[in-house]
Structures are given as C-alpha cells and as structure tokens.
Design a protein around this nucleic acid. Structure first.
Length: 592
DNA sequence: GCCGTTTTCGGCCCGACTGTTTTCAGTCG
C-alpha cells in the first residue's frame, strides 16, 4: 500500500485547524492543530508508521493527534475531520486564501451574503455589497477587490528558494540606497526552505515612516498591502510578497532572529526565556522585572541573544524546532558544511550534450568560482532528447579536457550521467564503464516504472559511483517517486555508492530530510549543480543549503575532498563494490 | 489540543497595521 506522506498528513491537520477556526472554535485548539501539522511536515520519518508512544513523545503531539494519525494510517482521514467537513460549507476554506479575509470575515460573508467561493466574493465586491456589512466599509471592499483581481489570488503558490534569493539580493541594495542600514533578508528564505511564501527583510534606520514610504514607492513594488512607520508589506511585480521591517540599531540582532523564525523555533526560545525570568521580543531579551523594557539583556546581535539564553549560535538553516535548541544547549550542534569546504562539482553538462556552454567555458567558470577541481559531465547516448555521448565520444572529449585542465590550471576529469534502463542496467557495457572517470547513475525515462527496484539494481553495478536526483521530483511540477529510503541507503552503504543533492532549484533532490537519513545510514553525499550552463555552476549554493538544512558537516560530503582523494575514493569504492558483487555471484552459484 | 520543578486545571508569544471605531476587532506574520 502506498504510504501517506508527512506533507499530506500535515495538510489534513491544517485543514482541521482552518475548519475549527471557521467554526469559531477555541483559538488554542486551532493553534494546537496548526502546530502539529508543522511538526509532522518536518518529521524525518513517516509519521503514520510511528508507534503511538514515539508520537506522543514528540513535543506538540499528544494523545489526541496521535490517535488521529492512527485513523489516518488506516482510512486516510479521521472522524473529527469528516465531521467538520460536513458542518462547514465547502468554499469557506477557499475564502481564507484571500488577503484580508480571516475566519471571522469569511463566516460573516457566508452567513449574511451567502458567499461560499472566491468567484461569489468577487461578484459581491463588484456589486458594492460588502461595504454594507458591519466592520467592512468601503476600504475593506476595495482591498478585497484588488486582491481577488490579482493573478495570484486564491492560490497558495510558493516561489522556489533560488528565485526568491535572487529577488531579495537585488532588493537589499535598493533598501540601502533609501537609507536602510544593514539590510538583510530573514524568514524562510534565510532558513533555506525549498520554497518560500514571501520575502522578509529587516534593516535599521529612521522609524518615522519615511523609509517605509520610500520603499513602498520602489518601481519593483506592484501593490502596497500595508505601510506604517516601521513596517511595509508589499506585493512585488514578480507576484511575491515582501515585508520590510525597520528596527532600532540596538535591536538588530533580536529582530533578525525574530523574523528569521521559524515560528515554532521562536516560541521555544521565548519559553526558554520565560524560564529564566526573561522575555524575548523583536526588540530584545529583557528581564521580566524591567517593565518598561528599557535595558535589554541582549539584543544587538543574534549571537548575543542566543548566548544570553545559554545557547550556542544556531545557524538559520537549523531553526525549525527539530531538536536544535537542545543540541545548542549541550554545545553539540554540528559544524555545518560551508561554501569554503566545497572544492568541486560532480554533475553538470556541456554543449557536447544538452548544456549551453563548452567544456572550456564551463571549466573557466569553475575556476572563476574558486573551485580547485571539477568533473565536467554529459549525458550518455541513450537519452535521445539530450544528445548524449557514446563511449567513443566520451574518450575523445576526455582527451580534450585533460589539455584544457592543464591550460586553465583547474584540475578536471570527466563524468557521465549514465542512463539506468527499465531493468536497472547501466547503459555502457562493463569494459567501457570501468574506464569512465566518474559515473552518475540516473533514471530519466519511465519514472513511474519501479524506480525502487531499478535503483537497487543499478547499485549492483560496481561503477555506480553516485546516484543522481533519486526521487525524480520537480517542485510544483512532479511529485517524488515513492521510495523506501531505508532500503536504498542500506544498499548504498554496502556498495559505497554516494547519493547526490541535486542543486537545480526545482529538484533539490535528495531533499533535506532524505539527505539526513542517508548520512545517518552511513552514505556519502555529493553536492552537485546539474548545471546546463556555466552560470548554473552557482547552484552549488542551492545544493549546499539543502545539505546545511540536513545538518551535514564537511566530513559527510565528498566535495570537501581534494582532487586526488576523490580519484582515490572512486578507485577504491569500485574495487570494494566489485568484490562484493562477485562474492554475491559466487554465493548464488554455490547455492544454485 | 498540548503541557506540567507553580502538573490533572488553567494557562497557552507578541506586536504592527488597518479600518472602523470612540477604545478596539480582525488580520497577519
């Protein structure tokens, strides 16, 4: 049976929270469901397959939610949710997606005007009927009209991390030009989430509204949602929402930490503060006795705030309330892999197959990024759409690369993204594949056809050095294949095969959760760009970000090795995998 | 619904902004 993913379980709990909210249920009960949904979405293991005692051991999950999960595991839903679905009119959930409409207004709209869809809402707004409702007025009606008319209305579409990062990095200097000091992005963007819902920015500067007013008038801004003295909330021309918050210089660290979150991480920090007779807000950490909040215990830098709470500095990528606070308290946080540890790339494409740039341009770009070495790759021949290379073409290009490497002063070797066929066999025959510098094994065609078995089969080939984009997912476009990672990683640990974290922004595959499990199973990770142009070698940063979220250190990733060490790693792992394969072969023969 | 060295009841993070108010509710992050 197909297992229920944590994200679909989380969606059910979120829906329950929204329905309760619409029903006017207890706020804290609503919060409890939201919190549980968030926790489960970030769990490294399948929530529905965990025993009850394990579940209730997780903070934020009690008997109630655990029993819902048990029901979900069997029937895909739980009775209380079905009950609420019957009670609350369909379509009210949809209204919650509209800016400026929360549970109260949604309820009022339904009760008084029979509004039960965004379409009907639009109709009533255009007819000018909304302003008649108490607490609505003409302004609210205008705002609703505007938000229903905008292209992103009603959708919960999120933006890929990389795209949001580029937008934010373009905006930061603009904020600085307006007089904002130390502008920085925060929120889920800074935490490196796969996708982000909006861009949060913080800066210091004048808190009289002038900076906010100027920001709201930037040409990049399509629409202003709110603009006060210290905060602006706008929709950018790209469609992405962006919030800017201006804080006093002395509060900068507290504010940065506060707006970086996650929400749950912040709640834990505040609880920790309270236990120490302190209170934490975006303005700083204060003694509870200091009623006027005049003299912060810490506030200037994030490091100060964490230190004052008895914690080591927690890198943003780990701030998801996934046990990082406990580790920080014990001084046991991992030292996350950094850009400086990354010496090269393994998987990319040149103009010899489907890349845009020549081997020379790719190698020069790698050198320009400060890489010590790199593999330059291409598809193997059977992937027709990508004009792949056969062994002869591989050998010829390899000779050219050796010359280029000497000329440009960047150590280099050749990799092939080798097709795994329907039976799990690699494309090149054994006598050829053994002479390929590095083999990145990948499933592209017939993705739905037994991906698990094919990957396991592929790893029996001693030359499967790295497995590419294992799940095959493309964020927002294609769901991940349902893989049993425990089984895959156990096989990979035995054969010494590494898994990549593919840095294409829509792939990010392995995911952070899967990469953590791979590391725990003893599997090495390769950070790769899968670049199809020289510019895309920058995707190393995307791959690195996923690795950091997974809690990986430099020892966990192959990219930190020197070129000589990498070549030796390939040689020795193939030798070991070869011995393993032939031992298994003998074993089968003797039994047969 | 969750949680507990103030533990089985009674709390539950906190502030900004807007619009419609005449002191505040609703929404958002």
């Amino acid at each position: 049976m197909q297992k229920l993913s944590n994200s679909s379980v989380a969606a059910l709990l979120s829906e329950m929270a929204s329905l309760l909210e619409l029903e006017g249920g207890d706020y804290f009960r609503v919060r409890a469901y939201q919190k549980a949904a968030q926790i489960i979405a970030g769990l490294p293991e399948e929530a529905v397959s965990l025993p009850q005692v394990r579940l209730t051991g997780i903070r934020g999950i009690g008997k109630g939610i655990a029993s819902h999960l048990a029901r979900i595991a069997v029937s895909g839903t739980f009775p209380e949710l079905e009950e609420m679905r019957r009670k609350v009119p369909r379509g009210l959930l949809e209204l919650l997606g509209v800016e400026g409409i929360g549970p109260r207004r949604a309820r009022l709209l339904y009760d008084r005007l029979g509004v039960d869809s965004v379409a009907k809402l639009k109709e009533k707004a255009l007819a000018g009927e909304l302003r008649e409702l108490e607490g609505f007025g003409p302004k609210v009606e205008e705002n609703i009209k505007a938000s229903v008319a905008s292209p992103s209305a009603g959708t919960t579409e999120r933006t890929l991390w990389w795209e949001a990062l580029r937008l934010a990095e373009a905006l930061l200097p603009r904020v600085a030009e307006l007089g904002g000091e130390k502008p920085a992005y925060a929120g889920s963007l800074r935490r490196g989430r796969e996708t982000v819902g909006d861009i949060d920015m913080v800066c210091c500067g004048r808190m009289d509204g002038t900076l906010i007013a100027k920001f709201s008038r930037l040409p990049e801004v399509l629409r202003v949602l709110a603009a006060g003295e210290t905060r602006a909330s706008v929709v950018l021309r790209s469609g992405l929402q962006c919030d800017l918050r201006v804080v006093p210089e002395a509060s900068y660290g507290a504010a940065l930490s506060y707006f970086t979150g996650s929400k749950e991480h912040n709640v834990r920090l505040r609880e920790r503060a309270l236990k120490r007779g302190l209170t934490l807000s975006e303005y700083g950490l204060f003694r509870l006795k200091d009623k006027g909040r005049k003299r912060p215990v810490a506030s200037r830098t994030e490091e100060d705030v964490y230190r004052a709470l008895g914690l080591d500095y927690i890198p943003p990528e780990l701030r998801e309330a996934g046990g990082e606070i406990e580790l920080a308290a014990r001084g046991a946080l991992p030292r996350l892999v950094e850009m400086g540890d990354i010496k090269g790339d393994f998987h990319n494409h040149t103009s010899l197959s489907d890349g845009a740039d020549s081997m020379r341009d790719m190698l020069a770009a790698a050198g320009g990024l400060g890489l010590e070495w790199t593999f330059l790759g291409d598809h193997s021949s059977s992937l027709g759409v990508a004009r792949g290379l056969d062994f002869k073409a591989y050998e010829k290009s390899r000779g050219e690369l050796v010359a280029l490497s000497a000329e440009l002063g960047v150590a280099a070797a050749r990799s092939i993204e080798m097709e795994v066929d329907r039976n799990g066999a690699l494309e090149f025959p054994a006598e050829e594949i053994g002479r390929v510098d590095l083999v990145v094994a990948a499933v592209h065609s017939a993705l739905k056809r037994e991906p698990q078995r094919r990957l396991l089969e592929a790893m029996k080939n001693p030359c499967s050095d790295i497995i590419a984009h294992a799940s095959g997912r493309q964020l927002g476009r294609r769901d991940p294949a349902p893989l049993d990672y425990d089984e895959l990683f156990a096989a990979a640990a035995a054969s010494g095969t590494a898994f990549e974290i593919n840095g294409q922004p829509e792939r990010q595959d392995l995911s952070d959760v899967a990469a953590r499990r791979a590391r725990d199973a003893g599997v090495k990770i390769a950070l790769t760009t899968d670049a199809h142009s020289a510019a895309q070698l920058a995707y190393l940063r995307q791959s690195l970000t996923v690795a950091r979220r997974a809690g990986l250190t430099r020892k966990d990733v192959l990219n930190s090795l020197s070129f000589g060490e990498i070549r030796e790693w390939v040689r020795s792992r193939r030798a070991k995998a070869g011995r393993l394969a032939s031992a298994k072969g003998r074993d089968l023969k003797s039994r047969g």
